[in-house]
């Protein structure tokens, strides 16, 4: 399996295929800036919670210029791993159901489900294949590779947007998203060593 493209985003830096992407804002503003510069025409972005914004923008950077994008396809999976999942939105929704101010927000509640980020990416790109949100006790490049390789035994899946999306609050988040496929050959092997290099901004 090969890593075809990769991106890493944290509150201060963005690197696409190892090349720094210039940004001026930080945190949530950094994500909004990427939206304005790279997407522009998908206002649903502003309804999303932090985890979805992060995963969505990372996916946009990876596949935004892919040929035949938006043609429905079943062969591409979306496989995302997190530790705390939608904890940030859990906090926001919890505030709407306080004892003395009970006004539960359906718009916030929906995003408290860990897999909505995979659904948002699938909807945007018309990916009709496997979409799954996994949870790890902590980041592990080895376990990430194992999980994605297991998911690739699906008979239809030939490529995936996969990786780590962790966003406990707007000052602390990290996306390591990769476009991988099941071919062998030249390029970057999908293995723990390469994922760790991406994580450490060494690639």
């Amino acid at each position: 399996m090969r890593i075809l493209r990769y991106v890493r985003i944290d509150p201060d830096t963005v690197r696409l295929d190892g090349v720094p992407v210039p940004v001026t804002g930080r945190g949530l503003e950094l994500l909004s800036e990427l939206y304005r510069n790279r997407v522009k025409d998908y206002p649903k972005f502003f309804k999303m919670d932090l985890l979805c914004k992060l995963g969505f923008i990372a996916a946009e950077l990876l596949v935004g210029d892919e040929p035949d994008r938006f043609v429905p396809r079943e062969d591409r999976a979306v496989l995302l791993v997190s530790r705390t999942g939608p904890l940030c939105d859990d906090r926001n929704y919890q505030k709407t159901i306080a004892e003395d101010a009970y006004f539960p927000s359906p718009a916030l509640f929906v995003y408290t489900l860990a897999n909505i980020v995979t659904g948002e990416i699938a909807i945007r790109n018309k990916y009709e294949g496997d979409t799954t949100a996994y949870g790890f006790p902590s980041f592990s490049a080895g376990m990430l590779v194992s999980v994605v390789k297991v998911a690739f035994t699906d008979r239809v899946t030939t490529s995936a947007l996969c990786g780590w999306v962790e966003a406990p609050d707007s000052d602390h988040f990290e996306a390591i998203l990769m476009l991988v496929d099941d071919t062998e050959g030249d390029g970057m092997e999908f293995n723990p060593e390469n994922i760790l290099k991406i994580k450490l901004n060494q690639r």
Binding site: G85, T132, Y134, G135, F136, S138, S140
Partner: peptide, 19 residues
């Protein structure tokens, strides 16, 4: 072994069995 969590909304249990 580190445990794996599957949180795929209402299909979580079935995705867990499949995986």
């Amino acid at each position: 072994n580190p445990p794996l969590v599957v949180s795929n909304a209402c299909i979580s249990g079935l995705t867990a069995l499949i995986h």
